[in-house]
């Protein structure tokens, strides 16, 4: 962000809960700070799911304005705002794809795989606060330890919006295998992140 004023610095020093508290009082500066903190993440998640920049922008607008209009839809749990925001975003994006009735049949393992970047220090993080960038590095590192066939299925579920049954059909794998791979993959992710998960409970 160019030309950061002292006031913006003050706002960027507030944590998510404090910003949400001010948003409840219709503090537009707090809203702006929240937007700047998470816009890249929300936008990229939408884009990853809907794969259309214009639709993704509209969705970012809708998601943030919904927060502005109904901040109470987020129930304050210290440190959990990010989890909530990401899941709202992902669900909204998947719904969008469904409602546009063009389920991502073309979602294949290989492009999804391309999206995953091994834990090389991400060069595309200028938009993230130092704290978020750190978290992201940890997560990329954790993802690297998940076998690719598990990671692929998780990606199809999370970003492709496919159910386990649909994934099984798509990949021509038995449903049981799909279920097992999801569980194992997520377990490994959790295990790799457990020491770092404290940030969720700040």
């Amino acid at each position: 962000m160019p030309d950061v004023s002292p006031e913006e610095i003050a706002y960027s020093g507030l944590d998510d809960e404090e910003l949400m508290e001010r948003i409840r009082y219709r503090d537009l500066k707090a809203f702006q700070a929240l937007y700047r903190r998470y816009t890249a993440l929300v936008y990229s998640t939408c884009l990853r799911v809907v794969r259309d920049p214009h639709i993704a922008e509209d969705m970012v607008q809708e998601i943030f304005l919904r927060i502005w209009r109904k901040p109470e839809s987020y129930v304050n749990q210290r440190g959990r705002f990010l989890t909530w925001l990401i899941s709202v975003t992902r669900n909204r994006a998947v719904d969008e794809v469904r409602s546009r009735n063009r389920r991502l049949r073309h979602e294949s393992a290989s492009p999804a795989e391309q999206d995953f970047q091994p834990p090389a220090p991400p060069a595309d993080d200028p938009a993230l606060s130092a704290e978020l960038a750190d978290q992201r590095r940890l997560i990329l590192g954790a993802l690297a330890v998940i076998p690719s066939e598990q990671r692929e299925i998780i990606q199809l579920a999370y970003f492709g919006g496919l159910t386990q049954q649909e994934i099984a059909e798509r990949l021509g794998q038995p449903l049981g295998t799909v279920k097992t791979r999801i569980r194992l993959g997520m377990q490994k992710l959790r295990a790799a992140l457990t020491p770092q998960l404290r940030w969720e409970d700040r």
Partner: peptide
Amino acid sequence: QSAALFAFSITLQEPPTSLERRIL
């Protein structure tokens, strides 16, 4: 939480700055 963390694995991009103006 683990599922949400998964979103972090994607390549991050900024939307155009005009979007911020529009939303605000």
